[in-house]
Simulated scan of single mutants.
Amino acid sequence: MGKYFFLTLFAGMLLSCSDGDLQIETIDFDSVALQFCTAPQTTAKNIMFKINDDEALILELQSGVLNRGVVGETVTTESTVPGQSQVTYRIFSDGVTKNYFCDDIPLTEPTVVDEIEAQDGTVIIETVANEDNTEFVHTIRLSGISFVTDTDERITDLTISEFGEVTTDIPE
């Protein structure tokens, strides 16, 4: 009888194991449009975001990183995360809109359910002049972005390599 008790107990333990209650399995923002409240500037920090229903991916670019273009050349600039720039992933209690980030008076709903800041990675910005040489087109990519939750779980399925494109005027 003792053998059956331990066998049943062992089988029960195997069947009841959890994987740490991982809530976030995938972060996928590649097909979501890039948004911002104010037009990107070359001499200030820039905050840009992507919204996917009740999730948001927020990029805070370091000051001056968009001011690296040369007419007639393609210039690639890198910004480290979290040292120079920051990438933050948020989950909200309900769908969120641009107004959540851009209104003068912050909205109280939806509320932030979870917020995770990237622990590692690089923001890569490729800058070229447009055909008229009136604006720089900055293509922003994320590389090696690593999110670690409060319970030390690493989010490994990241589909966020293409962050988007922004333009800035070519200085005279």
Rank of each mutant, 00 (worst) to 15 (best):
G2N: 12
K3D: 15
K3I: 11
F5M: 13
T8P: 00
L9G: 04
F10H: 11
L14G: 12
L15R: 08
S16D: 05
S16R: 02
S16F: 03
C17M: 14
Q23C: 01
I27R: 08
I27D: 12
V32Q: 11
A33Y: 10
L34G: 05
L34M: 13
P40I: 04
P40M: 12
T42N: 10
T43A: 11
I47M: 09
M48A: 06
M48S: 10
L57E: 04
L57C: 04
I58W: 06
Q62D: 14
G64V: 01
L66W: 04
G69V: 10
V70Y: 02
E73G: 00
T80L: 15
G83R: 08
V87N: 05
V87D: 09
V87I: 15
Y89N: 07
R90S: 05
I91T: 04
S93Y: 03
S93V: 04
G95W: 02
K98D: 12
I105D: 14
E109P: 00
V113T: 03
E115Q: 15
E115C: 02
E115N: 03
A118P: 05
G121M: 09
E126Y: 02
T127H: 06
T127M: 06
N133H: 09
N133T: 08
N133G: 12
T134M: 05
I140K: 15
R141P: 00
G144L: 02
T149M: 10
D150Y: 05
D150N: 08
E153C: 06
R154K: 13
T156W: 14
S161I: 02
F163V: 07
G164T: 06
T168Q: 10
